[in-house]
Every structure is written in structure tokens, then in C-alpha cells.
């Protein structure tokens, strides 16, 4: 049965255990970073960072809000990146039916730089990153190897607060709804993000645009995407979106 992640940011302490566990499991090398006036590092996804915790801070009506968003690929039910890649290199991006994972294969190397950029551009969440050295297009791989061995994804396994959850889709959606009802008591603006379309479902307590640019679904360079536009994009063959 296809699975789903449920990420409850109302519990996240930004300990970054998930970010580090992801690196360790994948044996990803560290990338050079600098302090630029924020705790968030690296600043964005890299070919060696499939999971990063995003930090954003606000003072609203005298109240400090420090928001944490453990960001990763959403594993869309109908992934636009796959449509885009299929137009050029079938098999570069596959949907693993049993698990629901959206997986980037070695064939992503065959995408040209422009094609890879196009695949990136159709992602409403700004996830894929092309590794300039290997030519691979990279992102969260669902820890598919761990799961096939009966283990939880590394980020879920390491999380000590209950932020990261993983399981059968029905169970996760039910957990998400239950949690939302409870969280709304203290945070009336809490919501789930695009849960009908994604296998990685976030619960946020504040308006989604406060977290980071791509906590909203977006058409890059065009700003936030309406729900209708989002649905239309999921429904349209990707080739018609070009130009």
C-alpha cells in the first residue's frame, strides 16, 4: 500500500536531527557553508542535502514567531517533474507504485542542462537540484532502500518530537486531521498543505507564506500559484506548459 509522510511543524524544535540523519544515511559529503546571520544552513537544497530545516522569524503584534520547516520533496501523487522528464528521457523519473515514491534515476544524467532546468521549473516547491559534476538530478529519495529493508526513513527514525511521521496513507491522513483539530485549539490558523495531492503532508500553524518562499506552491518567477492553477498544472501534459 502506498505510504505517506506527515510532518507536524507544530512539534518541530529545529534540532536538525532529520537534516543530519539524511546526510549520514546517504553518506553525503558536507558542503562548505558560512554564517550569514541566520541559523539556517545550508541556505538551500544541494545535491548533498535532500532535507534541510528552514528557519524564519517574525515579530507580529509584539509576539515573536520563530518558524521551522523541515523541507523536502513532497512526492506528489501526480508529479509534474515526472511528466516534464518523460517528455525527454522516459525512465529518468519514475513513480514507484507500491510505495508512492517519486524517484530520480541515473537516467536523469541524460537530461540536458536546459531540460533539467525545465524539470526543476515545473516543481511547485523548488525541490530538484542538478549536480553539476555528475549531471544527476537530485532530491529526497524516500529512503527507498531503507524502506525496502523494513526500516523507517532516516529522518523519521531520528525525530524525537513526533514531527516526522511515516506510514500507510490512510493512517497518516487520519493522523493529520486529528492533529490539525487539536492544534487548532491553540493555533486557529493551522492548516494542512495540499494534502490531497502530496505524499508528504505538512501541518503548519501560521500562514504558509511566513515559513519560506516555497512553503507556498509557486510557479517560479511568477509568484504564488492559485489552487486552480495548481490543479490545472497537475492535469495538463507538461509539454503544453512550455513557452
Amino acid at each position: 500500500m502506498p505510504k505517506t509522510f506527515f510532518i507536524d511543524t507544530s512539534r518541530c524544535t529545529a534540532c536538525r536531527g532529520c537534516q543530519v540523519a539524511c546526510k549520514e544515511w546517504h553518506q553525503h559529503k558536507a558542503v562548505p557553508t558560512k554564517q550569514t546571520g541566520t541559523h539556517q544552513n545550508p541556505p538551500d537544497f544541494t545535491p548533498f542535502n535532500f532535507k534541510i530545516v528552514r528557519f524564519s522569524e517574525h515579530k507580529i503584534d509584539g509576539q515573536v514567531k520563530w518558524l521551522f520547516f523541515p523541507d523536502q520533496c513532497r512526492h506528489c501523487l501526480v508529479p509534474p517533474c515526472k511528466d516534464a522528464a518523460d517528455a525527454y528521457v522516459p525512465g529518468a523519473i519514475v513513480l514507484d507504485e507500491p510505495s508512492g515514491a517519486v524517484l530520480y534515476t541515473d537516467l536523469t544524467k541524460k537530461l540536458t542542462i536546459d531540460q533539467a532546468q525545465e524539470v526543476h521549473d515545473v516543481c511547485p516547491y523548488n525541490i530538484p537540484v542538478r549536480d553539476r559534476d555528475s549531471g544527476l538530478l537530485t532530491k529526497c529519495d524516500w529512503c527507498i532502500d531503507r524502506q525496502q529493508a523494513g526500516m523507517l526513513p532516516a529522518c523519521v527514525k531520528t525525530c524525537c518530537t513526533g514531527t516526522m511521521n511515516f506510514g500507510e496513507r490512510d493512517d497518516m491522513l487520519a493522523l493529520a486531521q486529528r492533529t490539525l483539530a487539536k492544534v487548532k485549539e491553540r493555533h486557529p490558523q493551522a492548516q494542512l498543505l495540499d494534502e490531497e495531492y502530496l505524499r508528504v503532508v505538512y501541518l503548519v500553524t501560521e500562514p504558509r507564506n511566513l515559513y519560506h518562499e516555497y512553503a507556498e506552491r509557486r510557479v517560479p518567477n511568477r509568484g504564488p500559484m492559485s489552487r486552480q492553477a495548481f490543479l490545472a498544472m497537475l492535469a495538463r501534459p507538461v509539454t503544453r506548459m512550455r513557452g
Binding site: 543530519v20 558536507a30 562548505p32 558560512k34 541559523h39 544552513n41
Partner: peptide, 12 residues
């Protein structure tokens, strides 16, 4: 421990 230094690289 490189992934930790990556996450918090410099004195602030």
C-alpha cells in the same frame, strides 16, 4: 563532524 559544522559553521 562535518554535517554539524555544515549546519552551524561559524561564530555568531
Amino acid at each position: 563532524t562535518p554535517p554539524l559544522l555544515e549546519a552551524e559553521p561559524q561564530l555568531y
